[in-house]
Structure formats: structure tokens, C-alpha cells
């Protein structure tokens, strides 16, 4: 059907639209940056062989996946927020930088120092972002209320960028201390376990908002919790512990990231209008870029277990 012909003749240019165009530019640049880093990495020879090296690589891959999740998720959420505050461009930008830094190899050259700096800045950005989000929540009527925790700036989201930065930093430490694999593995296991619990808290909040309308929504709340606890207990008692449970749980967490992405894509499609109404549903439906962050944490957790079990501290 064609539009009717009775139209108002515009007598003046249209007034300002919400500025979402710059958001697209930032996201596009971010993707390009991350893609370039990925391509650069693929072309580089891979020297690593030992457990220690593999674990570092795996952890950084986990951090990169986490960063990519933040890149797309923050772009989407901040698009929803209309990039009202210029600082909202920082999140996807820093996430892209974080991805690039994590994909690079640790070392002591100039580029490596840049990567290290990027991890530190990601960590800081995540922390500051959490502050921003907290401020956004408290300034609304109701203050720290369920309505604002559900619908104002998501309190846990910037934390993922901080985690990506922290994981990146950890690998720098690992690389610098090849003799302390086991000790650092413990630390990494404890850290990743804590991150898993934190991430789970955010998922629990959002799935609670969704009234756990699908029983599958309990999976990313229960399994990562168990995995987090298993990791932390390994960190606390590394000697003689069987790591098979922890490995199985972490593997499941990693798979859940992929499964969750599929579920969320399905979820967007079942909202009114489905994917043909993507401009609404991609923003208000289940966040498609979010679940993959579990895959990133699962990788980092597995790397920690490898370090813990497969290396010895040498004095």
C-alpha cells in the first residue's frame, strides 16, 4: 500500500533528531580496530608451546571476548540512552581498545607497553563507569529502587570492562613472572571466580526483571555460581584437589555463553514485530551481546586451572 497523498508540505527544515549518528561511527571504528588487531594476530607466528604460554594466551582471549561483549553491549545500551552524555562514547571506544590490547601479545616493547596501559585504562574506565551508572540511578525519583536497578543505567555493566582490563593486567603479571605459574594461577583462579560471581549477580538481576519466564534463564545464574565457587575453592586449596569438576563447570559456562547468545537472538525475534522491528527489539529485547561474556570468563577460568595444575613454582 502506498502512502496517502494528502501530505503537509514541509515549510521548514526538520528539527534536530537525537544524535545517534556519532554512536554508529564510534562502534564502526571500534569494530575496525578490533578486527585489525585480530587480523594482525592471525598473521603473526605463534611461538607459544608450554602450559604457561597457552594459559596467558587463553586468558587474553577471554579478556578479548569480554571486551567485545562490552563493545557491542555498551554501544547498544548507550544508543538506547541516546548518547545523552558525551562520556557515553568512552565505553565502546575503550572496549575496542581493550579488545585490541588483549589480542596483542604481552611483552616489553613499545607496543606492548601501550597494551599494558590500555588494560589499566580499561580497568579504570569500568570503575568510573560504575560510578556514573550509580549516579544515574540515584538521581532518578526512587533512588536506589528496584525500578531504577532494572531500568536506569545497568549497575553491573561497566564492571565487565573493568574485568576485561583486570584479566589483561593479570596476563602481564603472568608473563613477567614465568617462575610463579602456580602462585599466579591461584590468584587468577580466585580473581576469575570472583568475577564469575559478580557477573552472575548482574545476570540474576536482569533475569529476575524478566521474571525467569523461561526456566532456561536459571542456567546462567546457577552454573556460573557453581563454577565461581569451584574456582575459588581451588584457589584456596590448590593441593590435591581434583580439578575435573571445576573444568567441567567452566567448560559449561563457556558453552552457556554461546547458548545464551542463541537464546537472546531467539528472544529478540519473539518480541512484537520480531527482527523486522529490530530498531525497537534489539534495544529492549534480551541483550544479544551480553551472554558471550561468560565464554570469556570460562576461558580465563580454564586457563587459571591449567596454570594451577600444570605448572610448578620454581625458586
Amino acid at each position: 500500500m502506498r502512502a496517502p497523498s494528502h501530505r503537509e508540505v514541509p515549510t521548514a527544515p526538520r528539527t534536530r533528531r537525537p544524535h545517534t549518528g556519532l554512536g554508529r561511527v564510534v562502534v564502526g571504528l571500534g569494530i575496525a580496530l578490533a578486527g585489525a588487531a585480530l587480523a594482525g594476530r592471525a598473521m603473526r607466528p605463534r611461538p607459544e608451546t608450554g602450559v604457561h604460554q597457552k594459559s596467558i594466551r587463553r586468558t587474553r582471549d577471554g579478556a578479548a571476548i569480554l571486551g567485545a561483549s562490552v563493545l557491542f553491549d555498551s554501544a547498544l545500551e548507550h544508543l538506547r540512552g541516546g548518547f545523552e552524555n558525551r562520556a557515553m562514547y568512552v565505553a565502546p571506544t575503550m572496549a575496542a581498545v581493550s579488545v585490541a590490547a588483549s589480542l596483542a601479545e604481552p611483552g616489553s616493547g613499545g607496543r606492548e607497553r601501550g597494551a599494558r596501559l590500555a588494560h589499566i585504562v580499561s580497568l579504570a574506565t569500568g570503575v568510573i563507569g560504575t560510578g556514573f551508572h550509580l549516579y544515574n540511578i540515584t538521581k532518578r525519583p526512587g533512588g536506589i529502587s528496584w525500578n531504577n536497578l532494572f531500568y536506569a543505567a545497568p549497575i553491573g555493566a561497566p564492571g565487565a570492562l573493568a574485568v576485561a582490563g583486570a584479566l589483561g593486567m593479570s596476563t602481564e603479571v603472568l608473563a613477567a613472572q614465568p617462575r610463579n605459574g602456580r602462585r599466579n594461577g591461584r590468584a587468577l583462579a580466585g580473581l576469575t571466580g570472583a568475577f564469575l560471581l559478580g557477573e552472575t549477580a548482574e545476570v540474576a538481576l536482569l533475569h529476575f526483571r524478566g521474571a525467569f519466564h523461561n526456566p532456561a534463564m536459571y542456567l546462567p545464574v546457577t552454573v556460573p555460581t557453581a563454577a565461581g565457587i569451584a574456582l575459588i575453592s581451588l584457589a584456596l586449596h590448590p593441593d590435591g584437589r581434583d580439578d575435573r569438576v571445576a573444568r567441567a563447570l567452566l567448560g559449561t559456562v563457556g558453552a552457556l555463553g554461546l547458548l545464551g547468545t542463541a537464546f537472546h537472538i531467539y528472544g529478540v525475534g519473539r518480541n512484537m514485530g520480531g527482527w523486522s522491528n529490530w530498531r525497537q527489539n534489539a534495544l529492549v529485547g534480551p541483550p544479544t551481546p551480553a551472554p558471550i561474556s561468560f565464554t570469556g570468563l570460562g576461558l580465563a577460568g580454564l586457563a587459571a586451572v591449567d596454570l594451577l595444575q600444570g605448572t610448578e613454582d620454581r625458586r
Binding site: 532518578r140 525519583p141 531500568y151 526483571r209 524478566g210 521474571a211
Partner: peptide, 17 residues
């Protein structure tokens, strides 16, 4: 309640304020 509260729109926030 079986389902969670909705986001309060601007008109509702006037009442809240």
C-alpha cells in the same frame, strides 16, 4: 507479583517527583 514492574515513563516520573 508474577512479573516485575515496568519502567516508569516520564508521565509517571512527574507523579514520583
Amino acid at each position: 507479583y508474577p512479573y516485575r514492574e515496568h519502567e516508569v515513563n516520564a508521565a509517571g516520573l512527574v507523579l514520583a517527583r
